[in-house]
Structures are given as C-alpha cells and as structure tokens.
C-alpha cells in the first residue's frame, strides 16, 4: 500500500510537469497547426534562467523559487521571438511542412546557441535547492514538499488557464482563432496578436515546468528538453492535440504510466511503455483520448 501510494504521487508529480509542457504544444498546435519542436528547449531556457537568477534571489533575501517569475518572462520572450523571427515568415510563404522543418531547426539552434554561450557551455550545471527539503507523512508514506508543490502548483496553474480560455476576452479570442481564422478576423480579432499571446503563455508555462522539474532533478544541460519535450508531446497527442484538457489528462496519464512501470515492472522499460501507450491510444482513438473525429463542416 505504501509503495503504491508513493508510486501514485511520483506519477502525479511527473504527470503534472508533462501536462504543463504538453499545454504549450497543444495551445500552439491549436492555433497555428504547428508542432513546435523547439518547445522542449524552452524548458532548458527556463532551467538556465533559474540557475542564473536563483542566486540573485537568495542574495536579495527572497525565496529561491521566486526566480520562476523571471524565468517565465524569459521563456515567454524566447517563445515570442521564435514565432516572430522564424515561424511567422515561414508560415506566410511556405507550407505546413516547411514550418515543421523550421521548428526542428529552431530546436537544434536553441540547443547549440546555449552551448556557445560561455556561461553555459557543454557541461551540465547542478542547480541549488529551490524548495525546503523534507515533507510530511500522509497515510503512512512520506510526501516530500517538492512533490506536493509540483502537484498543487500545476493544478492551480491549469485551473487558471482553463478559466482564462473560457471566461476572458483574450482567451475566447484564442479559441476563435483556433477554430476558424477567417471568422475570427471578421469579428475584429487580430490573428497575429492572438498567436503571439498563445506563444507567450505556452512558453511561460514551460518555465513553471522547468522550476518543478529542476527542483527534483537538479541537473541542467542544453539537451535536457529533448526527451522531456518529446514525452510531453506524446502526452499532448495521447490526450488529443489542440485540446487543452486533453493535454492535462495526457500528461497525467503518461506520468502515471512512467512511475508505475518504474516501480512494478522495470525502470529501463519506462520510455518503451510511454510510447506503447501512445500507440495503443492512437489505435483505439486516433484523435486522442479527448479528441473528437470531427468531419469538416461545410
């Protein structure tokens, strides 16, 4: 029972991080039909921003985790710049395929650019502690603070995001652009501005994911976003790409699969099972768990 609960909490912690990242993929896909392969690397950008700003925070007598505010701003800015410099011009001139290749290129570019920065370099940097260590005991198991914070913060962020997309004017504009661009224009919605806000929010979320991930696994390196991003992408697709609640659900499912495989089957098989689950989901529901196979209405 103790092991089961522990595994469950670890799964939820991993899943929360995947969900936060998957949201970035899914929001951008929903609005411009682009798989932003550079999104995983935004976690790396967030990770390094934390490495460099946490000491400033502690020196100023503030809690280390508050550096995430700066990381959110930096990630949002990088996301917006990537869209402005790379994706928007390519989208205007090229096809979906050229945009996709550009996304792969941006991913490699960010990773190599990071390595070229002297303060970063090719070797991993170990992050300091973001949260107090320890935890509290629940139902016979020790629930550490990082796990608790990760689950709670992700849940709150996702709830806020949901309210934002449902209730605010900008959130509604995003849903309109994602559903029907020309109708959105006829309503007076600026597609370009809406796309930029989507990139900013999606990338900002990856900074929160970076905080939670690095708090648990304090090694920051230039390619740290590759596998993490890939798995979050799997989560987004499994949940139904383009659908916000789908990314949340997909993230949690992937997290749980990973932690239960590690505990009960074999830790070296976790990634195999993650992709196996993706294949099974797509065989049963090609549009993802929450996806609907909607025929185009004319």
């Amino acid at each position: 029972m103790g092991e089961f609960l522990q595994t469950l909490f670890v799964g939820l912690r991993l899943g929360s991080v995947y969900a936060l990242i998957a949201l970035g993929y899914t929001m951008v896909y929903g609005i411009v039909r682009l798989i932003n392969f550079a999104h995983g690397d935004f976690i790396m950008v967030g990770g390094y921003t934390l490495i460099f700003t946490v000491p400033l925070m502690t020196a100023a007598g503030m809690p280390a985790w508050l550096a995430v505010v700066i990381a959110i701003a930096v990630c949002a800015l990088v996301g917006v710049l990537v869209e402005l410099i790379a994706y928007r011009p390519v989208r205007r001139k090229g096809t979906n395929m050229t945009a996709l290749i550009t996304a792969v290129a941006m991913s490699l570019f960010l990773e190599n650019l990071a390595q070229a920065i002297p303060a970063i370099g090719p070797n991993p940097i170990i992050a300091g502690q973001f949260f107090a260590s320890g935890g509290f005991r629940v139902a016979g198991v020790t629930l550490d603070y990082i796990t608790t914070y990760t689950i709670v913060v992700s849940a709150v962020v996702m709830l806020l995001l949901y309210v934002f997309t449902q209730k605010t004017k900008m959130g509604r504009a995003m849903r309109c652009v994602s559903e029907d661009k020309s109708a959105a224009i006829l309503m007076g919605i600026s597609v370009n501005k809406t796309v930029l806000s989507t990139f900013a929010i999606g990338s900002g979320l990856s900074a929160i994911a970076a905080l939670m991930y690095v708090a648990q696994y304090p090694k920051v390196y230039t390619t740290m976003g590759s596998l993490l991003g890939l798995k979050a992408f799997v989560a987004a697709v499994a949940g139904g790409i383009g659908i916000v609640p789908g990314a949340m659900l997909g993230g949690v499912v992937i997290g749980l699969v990973e932690s239960f495989t590690t505990s009960y089957i074999n830790s070296s098989l976790t990634d195999t099972f993650v992709f196996l689950i993706l294949i099974i989901v797509l065989l049963i529901k090609p549009a993802g768990i929450l996806g609907k196979n909607v025929g185009e209405k004319v």
Partner: peptide
C-alpha cells in the same frame, strides 16, 4: 459586418459565446 457563406459559427462555443464574440470590438 460580414456574414460568411456556410455561416462559420464557432461550433465549439455556445450560442451566447458566439454572440459575445460578435461584439468583440
């Protein structure tokens, strides 16, 4: 204002949300 061919209502939004989008500006 332009009412496009094929209506182009926002299918995944409610009737009222669609109308509110009409007043976006």
């Amino acid at each position: 204002a332009h009412v496009p061919e094929g209506r182009h209502v926002f299918a995944r939004m409610t009737v009222e949300e669609n109308l509110l989008m009409g007043a976006y500006i």
